[in-house]
Amino acid sequence: MDFNFGPVIESWRFLADGVRITVLLSLSVAACSLTFGTLVALARRYGPKWLQAILIFYIDSMRAIPVLVVLVWFYFAFPIATGINLPPFLSALVALSFNLTAYVAEIVRAGMESVRPGQVRAGLALGMSTPQIVRKIVLPQAFVRMMPALGNVLTLTVKDTAIAAVIAVPELMRRADAIAGQTYTPVEVFSTVMLLYFCIIFPITRGVDIVYKRISFLGRS
């Protein structure tokens, strides 16, 4: 069996740019999901009943529908239905964030629930208001406790961006497919890209572990 890594090496710039887009998309999606996920979790806990019902339905639906389906729907059906045409990158950003926000919301909710009620009582006894308690006591501790789960979501985000290849976002997966198709060297290309993804995701998994071990005491009451 002969390997020919020539095409992979020749197109390294093309692949490197794919890595850049993968990282950019991942970070954008992670930032959006974290922001909206926290808001959804807060609204689900403190919002009016009707809003809670809608949010629970949204969260459970996102747990039931594949990312691919959400992605494809946003890219192909959404523009026809609304007349709004988004470029692939933005479509992927919206669709992936829409999906991952639900996961983050669940994590934030569980994190907030895991903060001992005594902590809230201590805040109340100091005369703090509920928004003050949420902001200064519950959320900071919850975020520390949620770190492993949020780390998981971050790796999940990178993995999900690979699915955006399906709607032609020129990220790493898409570029690998393109090179493999043009040069007839799928073994070399996909093995290389496998290594690249591993090199992106593995450090996140490990890094979150290491950081969490050092700061977990901040969330332990």
Binding site: G118, R121, A122, A125, Q141, F217, G219, R220, S221
Partner: peptide
């Protein structure tokens, strides 16, 4: 206007 001290301290760990 009242101070309270709890059995489990309830210091804020962060």
């Amino acid at each position: 206007r009242m101070g309270m001290v709890f059995q489990n301290f309830e210091l804020f760990p962060h």
